[in-house]
Design a protein around this nucleic acid. Sequence first.
DNA 1: CGTGGATTTGATACGGGTCAATGAGGGTGG
DNA 2: CCACCCTCATTGACCCGTATCAAATCCACG
Lengths: 240, 240
Amino acid sequence: MTLTCDSACRKCLNKLCTHKIPLFSSLNRDDLEHIAGSITHSSYNTGETIISMGEKSNQVTIVSEGRVKACRYTADGKEQILYIFAEGDFFGEQDILNEHNTPYQVEALTQVKLCRLSQQDFQNLLTEHPSIGLQILKEFSSRLQRLEKIVQGSGGRSIDARVSLTLLELAAKYGQKDEAGVLLSLPLSREGLANYMGIARETASRKLSQLENDGIIESLGHKAIWIRDPQALERIAELI
Amino acid sequence: MTLTCDSACRKCLNKLCTHKIPLFSSLNRDDLEHIAGSITHSSYNTGETIISMGEKSNQVTIVSEGRVKACRYTADGKEQILYIFAEGDFFGEQDILNEHNTPYQVEALTQVKLCRLSQQDFQNLLTEHPSIGLQILKEFSSRLQRLEKIVQGSGGRSIDARVSLTLLELAAKYGQKDEAGVLLSLPLSREGLANYMGIARETASRKLSQLENDGIIESLGHKAIWIRDPQALERIAELI
DNA sequence: CGTGGATTTGATACGGGTCAATGAGGGTGG
DNA sequence: CCACCCTCATTGACCCGTATCAAATCCACG
């Protein structure tokens, strides 16, 4: 289940914290080493639940390898994916900042390795390195912006716009740009995509088929999409 | 239009910053006085636009009196209200934190008085008083939580839940609790409410009527609602 | 090549948006 | 003080889009 690898600090210092975690980009070597000492590591398999909604973790968790989804479930079991966190992203700060419990469930989308920071260490970090607080502020600011767009979209009632917006967002994060378009290897299944966009699985299919018929995208199996005309997507998404 | 009252620092120090702005609650008298010196004041009338979407303000704005709405407009002119900011709330930090322009339009809902902090002063404040950064982090964290709930609601497709959730949220912020329920004096018209919830004006009416028929709320003119059974609302909102 | 799960497609129902008409306040002027 | 008007809110009728249910098809994997 949860493998604690206690001897990985060296590796963490070199490979993870220094290069991969933007949160720590402003720290010098000494600070990094100090932090690395207080970090605990663990790993999960695809599909495993990392933290359940409402739990109190008292930790900040940073993704060091793999991808996870943060989602909420309705009473009737419908899933809404709020975030997809990849290498360098963090979560679990809510119960430390406010006293709220984790407002979403986090599950592994792939094999993942996580770095965990205790409440105490996190708070020390914040007070000793204000620049990290600034980093987090920036991250929060962009998360807010994304959600604000979605909220507007849901009011704007345009599913097409939301689909396009999501494709563009994923393309920006996971896409491989190319002279003829963007190759997007999806971090999610179609069902996951649907849950991320907040629409029904079937509707997601239909909308993607429609985009394919319009020659804007091309479906490459179930795990990749070839975006032939990103600007068309932008045009559709714009009128959110 | 914009009245700059340059001699109000004394008043600001005593009445505004010290007591009303939670952001500054951790500062001592000297710091407050110093900040008060660099704040500019201005006021707007109901309905006036304070900042347009996409503008670059290079300022953080704090509401010191009155209420404003932050909203986005779709291409076809539909309005989605994202936030209602009241005394002590702040906005306009995006273009400082990231380089993004203001992602929403801000308009006065009432007569408002604003305090403005320049980019430079704000950044100084952040670096000199990390506790303020922490305050902002907390505020962002709760804004995120609210939007996350809404996003889930919009996926959950339950308008009723969203209406209930909104009523509860407004009740928490603007309601007067009482032995027999909560008296809520609305900061918004019905149309405003609808735009806040992201639904059509007519639907908002219908849903409120429905809640009134069920005996859960009672409409008191156009500007107030008497919530007779908050728990019923919670039950409905819960299944978001 | 076959099996099972995921995806796509089709048919239907329902919820909420939209348009149009009616109704209720609140402010103004007689 | 009352009547009128103007704006906002409510109600009704209708239509469109998406969820839902059911079936067919595709794809990955053994």
